[in-house]
């Protein structure tokens, strides 16, 4: 209740401030509502069991002027397997999940405020890399389960922004408080936390860390440290993350290399992206909460072919090693990002 009152006050304040701060536009950018999102199909074979996974994740972006934005994403994922896992007809269901529904107030550079149901900014995966058209490898890292609570979302308030910037780096932060919600569509845990990173724009290097405290049950802490680097002049994207929770710790390291400098057949090879990821995970207290109960290592290699920036074929092979047995995981599929104005409009 307190939370909703606080949000109400915030919005009221926002309205007053907004009325005073409309910038004169110096460009032709328009603010028409948008329907965007990702869709795709993944054919997954994991330890000999095939799953067919079509997915569509529409996002609605509804601007209110140039300082307020309502954004929401719904996930529809179909999950089909053979009746007896390796034989019989395919059966399955489509799962529907509300992933976020939030109001953003772009108040100022050091403080932007969000109220509603938002993605928890913990580590890099949940908020940045999760959409089907973004992930370089379709299976999330093992440690993506750390810091994402029951649903990957928080219900409450989040502040974020850039408190300091100069010509060589900027410091960014997010901090949030989420109330417990057991309502089925908007589940969230009672938790508070934050994320901060330093971004060296000229080197395209970001180093960050996230912290989260569970304010329910055992009151445990989660931490993450990450690095994201796209070296200028090198067709490479390096991402590294280390996560630690009460249930375990692990890291993943992903490299995505474009084959743009192939000495032969360059016009074909330049559309290929070669991805590798290695991960190591160790459970604590028997694992759980989405994490394996035994030490697990995994290596993945993938090859993606981009028709355009928003349409690609994906494929990958992974091998997982653990004392419960080793497994091969294959993925192949297609992903697409769509971006549509919701109604025709003038440019401004």
């Amino acid at each position: 209740m307190m939370l909703w009152r606080a949000s109400g006050l915030l919005l009221l304040g926002a309205g007053v401030l907004y009325a005073q701060s409309a910038d004169p536009p110096q460009n032709n950018a328009g603010y028409v509502p948008v329907l965007s999102g990702g869709m795709g199909y993944v054919h997954n074979v994991n330890g000999g069991v095939t799953s067919l996974e079509p997915q569509i994740d529409p996002i609605l972006l509804l601007p209110l002027g140039s300082h307020f934005l309502i954004e929401s994403r719904v996930d529809f994922t179909g999950y089909y397997q053979r009746q007896n896992l390796t034989s019989g007809p395919y059966t399955g269901t489509v799962y529907q999940t509300l992933e976020f529904a939030q109001l953003d107030w772009l108040a100022s550079t050091p403080v932007m405020a969000t109220v509603g149901m938002y993605l928890l900014p913990f580590g890099m995966y949940n908020e940045r890399l999760d959409p089907i058209w973004i992930r370089n490898l379709q299976d999330p890292p093992i440690t993506a389960a750390i810091g994402n609570g029951s649903s990957g979302a928080g219900d409450g308030i989040m502040l974020r922004g850039v408190p300091y910037q100069n010509s060589s780096f900027s410091i960014q932060y997010s901090s949030y408080f989420s109330a417990l919600s057991t309502i089925s569509k908007i589940q969230a845990s009672r938790t508070a936390g934050g994320d901060t990173s330093i971004f060296f724009g000229n080197h395209r290097l970001e180093i960050g860390t996230s912290y989260q405290r569970y304010l329910q049950g055992r009151q445990t802490n989660n931490v993450a440290s990450y690095l994201s680097w796209q070296p200028p002049r090198t067709p490479l994207d390096v991402k590294f993350e280390y996560d630690r929770s009460y249930n375990g710790q692990g890291y993943w390291l992903e490299n995505a290399l474009w084959l743009r400098q192939s000495p032969f057949l360059q016009n074909i090879f330049q559309r290929f992206q070669f991805v590798t990821r290695m991960q190591q995970f160790d459970p604590f207290h028997g694992g759980g909460n989405g994490l394996p109960s035994v030490g697990t290592n995994r290596f993945d290699a993938g090859l993606n072919y981009y028709f355009k920036d928003d349409l690609r074929l994906i494929s990958s092979y992974g091998r997982q090693f653990s004392s419960k047995g080793n497994e091969n995981v294959w993925n192949a599929g297609i992903t697409y990002r769509f971006l549509l104005p919701l109604w025709p409009g003038r440019n401004k």
Partner: peptide, 25 residues
């Protein structure tokens, strides 16, 4: 391109909306 492939084009009438979204993200 920190998080995803940079878009090749964004229709001007939605550029304001998309950049608001990305400013927050």
């Amino acid at each position: 391109s920190r998080c995803h492939q940079a878009p090749m084009s964004i229709p001007p009438r939605i550029t304001g909306t998309v950049i608001m979204h990305m400013r927050v993200r």
